[in-house]
Amino acid sequence: MSPAGRPLGPGTVTVSELAFGAAGIGNLFTPVTDEQAREAVDAAWDSGVRYFDTAPHYGLGLSERRLGQALRDRPRGEYTISTKVGRLLRPTPGRPGDDLADGFAVPATHERVWDFSAAGVRRSIEDSLERLGLDRIDIAYLHDPDHHADQALTEAYPELERLRAEGLLGAIGVGMNQAELPARFVRETDLDTVLLAGRYSLLDQGGLTELLPLAAEHGVGVVIGGVFNSGLLADPKPGATFDYAAAPEDVLSRALRLKEVCERHGVPLRAAALRFPFGHPAVTSVLVGTRNATEVRDAAAMLRRHVPDALWAELKERELLPSGVPTPKEER
């Protein structure tokens, strides 16, 4: 795994090759204890990870609070934190139940309110700083503005520029599960980075159509999330999920064929999935969601695995990857 300090876009913010996705320690789907969350962050640090991504959405602020606490005693200049704007958390006193309908095993103490207004963005950053226990945020992403594109462009983005000028932010990005709208942001703003989830993997190269070439042209750093496509490329088997739903038979079959080729070259499928995005020059970091120390150490070990050029060549020969897709060069 490459060392920390990879430049992210045109500014001064740097990231590590492997990024820690903190949705899991916000109790994504199942509970995680405070101790397990701390152990996961410590394991990431010990593995060389210096980029940590969170959001208010993750566990109704729990992820931000846990991440901030786990990093509190680390040298502030040695790590990068990103969080997101677009969903404000509004208290709901006395509301019963949990937040599992939105994917998080936490009490329903708050509700999420979509808000890409300038005032909403500033409030979101102020709240995140308080939960994280920080005085600045390295990267702020516009979070899933799919149905709020115009407001995000005309109100939220300019406010992030003001916050950056005030020193509360280091870089501005957009984070989405689609590639088309982020391409519009790259064309129409001075973004530093894009967090693209699920659209540039061994199974889905949608980001290559326009976004990645455009990002490279504009000097925008791209962070790739969802390299396992919500689990299928981590362990392809009947019942595995692809984009958070049961994998269709044809997609599962393709994943199993990918696994077969990888194993023939002595490479775990997880290692190839993690390494693949770095074939494109716009890609700076790969973000993996982890909830415990074991998962963190596995991701770091997989990214360190040697992947031969012959593996990528065979995947193209067998039409499991398009012939024109850029692939990483073997490290010798």
Rank of each mutant, 00 (worst) to 15 (best):
S2V: 14
V15N: 02
S16H: 03
E17K: 07
E17M: 09
G21D: 04
A22Y: 00
I25V: 07
L28I: 10
D34S: 05
R38W: 01
R38K: 14
A40S: 12
D42W: 10
F52R: 03
Q69S: 15
D73E: 15
R74I: 00
P75S: 11
V85F: 08
P93T: 01
P96C: 12
G97C: 05
D98K: 06
A105S: 11
W114V: 15
W114R: 14
A118T: 00
G120V: 03
I125Y: 02
L132N: 02
R136Q: 13
A140P: 08
Y141E: 02
L142F: 03
H143K: 06
Y157M: 05
E159L: 05
P182Y: 05
F185V: 01
R187T: 15
E188H: 02
E188P: 06
G198D: 07
G198A: 01
R199K: 13
L203M: 15
A215S: 14
G221F: 09
F228G: 00
G231N: 06
A246R: 11
P248D: 13
P248A: 11
G266Y: 09
R270E: 14
L287C: 08
V296S: 07
R297L: 14
W312H: 04
A313Q: 14
R318W: 01
L320C: 06
P328G: 03
R332L: 15
